[in-house]
């Protein structure tokens, strides 16, 4: 379980996350939705102890991330898919991660197979497409067989087959009783993947409800349009002329 309590992050230029409170329950996929710049990634970085909150707290299973001795066995996270050294092979990337948490080489082979990267494992990441980098990031998240998974925009750059693969993977992991948080800016995708939605805009909580409720409230309407109406007040970056 992930508990976000009055989490706030202010920068000199403004507020990225504003008094955000929500809970991510185990056993279901929770969609973390918001337009670009809504504060999703900043929230996730604070949950992982990468950014320091200005106020509030984020707990995973009742503990702060920094308290985990071998965090990869508790929490698996996919952050920016580009956070990789381009000169290192996929296998070596997973091997150093495994070493950092005392995990064996066998586990590296397993996640490479699970994510369909076995054949490309020896290639340097430089040669990887965005989709392959996403798969490597997911492999890294799965490495420690964690009970909590946090995937930031996992379907970015994936082909349709990859999108379905991520969707099924997230559902399967939640079905095994794990806590799964998947962020996205695509409502239609989340409607298919998540059974619960946490929607934010400009760092504030806009909605926290079962996906079904959102869908039935907007039955007949285009989901993407309904999502845009919900977040319309809080969109920071809009193309000229778009409403």
């Amino acid at each position: 379980m992930i508990e976000v309590n009055h989490l706030t992050k202010r920068y000199r230029g403004g507020t990225a996350v504003d008094d955000l409170t929500f809970t991510v329950e185990p056993g279901r996929v929770t969609g973390f939705l918001g337009p670009n710049g809504a504060g999703k990634s900043t929230t996730i970085r604070m949950v992982l102890g990468l950014d320091r909150p200005t106020a509030g707290s984020a707990l995973i299973g009742g503990r702060q991330y920094a308290e985990f001795k071998r965090p990869l066995t508790a929490v698996g996270a996919l952050l920016e898919a580009s956070d990789l050294h381009p000169g290192r092979s996929a296998r070596d990337h997973l091997l150093w991660l495994a070493a950092s948490n005392g995990l064996g080489r066998k586990r590296v082979q397993e996640v490479l197979e699970e994510t369909g990267l076995s054949e490309a494992a020896g290639k340097r990441v430089r040669a990887f497409s965005l989709g392959m980098r996403q798969r490597l990031g997911i492999a890294a998240a799965l490495l420690g067989d964690p009970g909590v998974l946090i995937l930031d925009e996992p379907v970015n750059g994936l082909d349709p087959e990859g999108v379905i693969w991520v969707r099924n993977l997230a559902k399967r992991l939640a079905g095994e009783g794990r806590t799964v948080l998947v962020s996205s800016h695509l409502m239609a995708e989340m409607a298919l993947t998540a059974s619960h939605l946490v929607v934010i805009g400009r760092g504030r909580l806009l909605a926290d409800l079962p996906t079904e409720e959102f869908v039935s409230a907007h039955s007949g309407a285009n989901l993407e349009e309904a999502f845009m109406r919900l977040t319309s007040e809080s969109v920071q970056y809009r193309a000229g002329g778009a409403r």
């Binding site: 970085r45 992982l48 102890g49 990468l50 991330y65 920094a66 985990f68 965090p71 990869l72 929490v75 996270a77 952050l79 920016e80 580009s82 956070d83 990789l84 050294h85 381009p86 991660l97 950092s100 948490n101 890294a140």
Partner: peptide, 12 residues
């Protein structure tokens, strides 16, 4: 490269 975020997620 941004690897530091992955590193600190592994070694908080």
């Amino acid at each position: 490269t941004g690897t530091v975020r992955v590193s600190l997620a592994a070694v908080p």
